[in-house]
Nucleic acid binder design. Sequence first.
RNA 1: GGCCCCUUCGUCUAGCGGUUAGGAUCCAUGGUUUUCAUCCAUGUUACAGGAGUUCAAUUCUCCUAGGGGUCACCA
Length: 461
Amino acid sequence: MTVTRFAPSPTGYLHIGGLRTALFSYLWAKHNDGKFVLRIEDTDRSRNNEDATRAIIKAFDWIGLAHDGEITYQSQRDEIYKKYIDQLLDEGKAYRCYMSCQELDSLRETQMSNKERTRYDGRYRDFEGTPPEGVEPVIRIKAPLSGTIRVKDGIKGEIVFNVEDILDDFIIARSDGAPTYNFVVAIDDALMGINSVIRGDDHLSNTPKQIIVYEALGFDIPEFYHVPMIHNENGKKLSKRDGATDVMMYKEMGYLPKALLNFLVRLGWSHGDQEIFSFEEMLALFNPKDINKSASIYNTEKLDWLNAHYIKNTPNDTLVKLLQEYDLVLSSHDKKEILLDVIKERSKTLVEMVTQIKEILDTPTQYDTKAVNKAFKGEAKAILEDFKARLMTAEALHLPSDYHHLVETVVTEREIGFGKIGQPLRVALVGKMGGPGIDSIMAIIGKEETLSRIDNALENI
RNA sequence: GGCCCCUUCGUCUAGCGGUUAGGAUCCAUGGUUUUCAUCCAUGUUACAGGAGUUCAAUUCUCCUAGGGGUCACCA
């Protein structure tokens, strides 16, 4: 069974890049009827943050990605790690290093000034004497001294690292006993049965270290898929400074989870020329081997287009519920179907929907000067008066077409173009040019409100 | 700097030796619309450079350049 995971460190909100790797992991697991699990990497006690964990879970909840089973917290697994540290110590595969931080720093400095690679020199690797006083040792793993490490990556292919170039006896437990990242990741992935590791390719250079741990502990090595980074407009790794990177900000801005997911899945992955993917299609078609090798630049133009597409295709009753999250209550509005039908055709976000709906529902308090100058020329007011008179006596006005017929009578009898009445009427109704058809607007706000807005306009323009 | 990865329209991408290098987005133009948007149509724009291999390279190999990532008692 395929088991994948998402393993964020709780240092803040759920990042858009993190969501993409989580999505890839989720899709691959579910594509294979497997499991997708969540693990919180909070081994750094000084930075452990429960709020961040909650924020991440909340974002997953909004986006609709569900993890399987309980969440694993590394901070609660100290005993497990301790056990494996002791095991490696007993087996002679790890050892205590009594080098102080200062000593390490100075070693590093001399190496740098000699233009050598900075690395631990292995001075305690086979140490058998009496340890120095007052130094709490770190635990280092015995890494191979020569040879190569091969990382088989499902996206990049096989990558061969030269041990001399990249490895030293790296620390697996700090002097306070806390285990380090590369150690616990390997253990947890192995223990949790993760057999497909899908993560950002910034982890590629960690992978050899983790393989050392896998091998020292006799664990099976999983399949690795290192997905290319998402870059900002400057071509650098997308970071928190790059505008909207918090997943929940997309909710605030009025994006639909479906649109965001569709946008993200197409960043670095594709299936022929297809652009629109329902969740079911993603599940059926996704395969990490089709992920691109190169980084992609984060540019949300296409997200807007996708979001507009998904809004257009969302049923009105669903939209009513969604809009409530943005403090717009439409449930009791008797013309909400007409309203939503015309607004969802012209909105890129839910936030835009809200403002456009308010522009129709709220009586205009001012009139755009340019629109007035353009629309209220010549006989405009007389035409409006004419229309108003007809409207007052008209009955059974419900649909946009009912209002349209009324407008039509003015147009035919006065032998004018639709624009002659349409433009001043539009300004009277919403205060400016643009927006849905006036027939629809009148149907939505109703006869009384229409009359009142016409009166207002006649009086104030 | 060492190591590793990457390179097709502005952006997201298709391509897997022979194509007028395709799609999407963006932008522009036209049509539809009383207006705006939608929608439809049309158009501009790309194989980083250089050597090979081959009858034939965007595609395979190598080199160069450029970009990125990573080098902690962070994750």
